[in-house]
Amino acid sequence: MERLFFYFIAIIILVFSVMAVNSRNMMRSIIYLLFVLLGVAGIYFLLEYNFLAAVELSVYAGGIIILYINSIMLIDKIGVPMEKPKGSRQLLAGLLSIFGLGVSLFAIYSYHFNQTATTTETTVKELGKHLLSYGNNGFILPFELISIFLLAALVGAIAIAKSTKTLK
């Protein structure tokens, strides 16, 4: 049952990500990306990382996608199709991607992963403790850094977007 579910999600992700990078309409591209992100959240659910899935949904699907949509509405005329990439470039990039994919998959499949059968559920409480722990496996420093980074990004984004200087 879970397996079927996984395959279903996998197909959704693959199809929509291909469509997201190929669609010539920006708005559609964003919506396809939204579906991909929903699929990713689904995988997190399947992996029993409920908190992570929630974060994915709220931050990505809820925040970032809306940001994109707003920006597109600000800057681009919706419905005007994007320029089509050159054929040779598409071919080259496609070949490169397939080649890289081949190498990566080859590497993955020829490596033997020691999968463990045990499963432990991760609770939000544990996660929070870990994030704020000063101990050996604690993440307090990156956590604080991320906080500052987010603040800086916030201020920076406002400052950049606010500047009204025009060229010439």
Partner: peptide, 8 residues
């Protein structure tokens, strides 16, 4: 998905 992203 990664390589689709690269392609894009």
């Amino acid at each position: 998905v990664f390589f689709i992203g690269v392609y894009g």
